[in-house]
């Protein structure tokens, strides 16, 4: 009868809420307990991105944000220079073009990267406006 009433009212059963919450909190716990994972991920991320643009390794920042139903990875990687498109053969572009302003690649983020005033300056973080929960930063 209770089941029927719940179905009727359309409230999700508390057990699925519990499972979802646990899934998220355990992911956050595991990341917080394994700083080496984050260090390795930073290194690999920069390695991959460096195949396309020159980035500032030192100024890379990574954090995790709790969203409603997911944990989001926010990476902020200052770009020092961008490879000039070499026409089709995208794997190993030869020409590099120095950009005046360091740019920020934000993952995930919207299309246009924000532009900083001076090259190599810490990128301005583009935050989501609505962050209900405290960002889960892993140290």
């Amino acid at each position: 009868m209770i089941e029927w009433l719940k179905k009727f009212l359309g409230t999700p059963p508390s057990s699925s809420t519990a499972k979802e919450r646990l899934r998220l909190v355990l992911m956050t716990d595991h990341l917080a307990l394994a700083p080496e994972i984050i260090e390795n991920m930073k290194r690999d991320l920069v390695d991959v991105i460096s195949r396309y643009v020159e980035v500032d390794r030192e100024k890379l920042e990574i954090e995790f944000e709790r969203e409603d139903r997911a944990l989001a990875l926010m990476a902020s990687i200052p770009i020092i220079s961008v490879n000039r498109p070499s026409g089709g053969d995208g794997e190993k572009p030869a020409v590099k073009e120095r950009v005046e302003d360091a740019q920020t690649a934000a993952v995930p983020g919207s299309a246009a990267p924000s532009v900083n005033a001076t090259p190599g300056e810490p990128p301005k973080r583009r935050r989501r406006k609505k962050t209900s929960s405290k960002p889960a930063t892993a140290h």
Binding site: E3, S15, S16, K19
Partner: peptide
């Protein structure tokens, strides 16, 4: 309770 969806299985 599990059956009613009120407890994790």
């Amino acid at each position: 309770m599990v059956k009613a969806g009120d407890m994790l299985s």
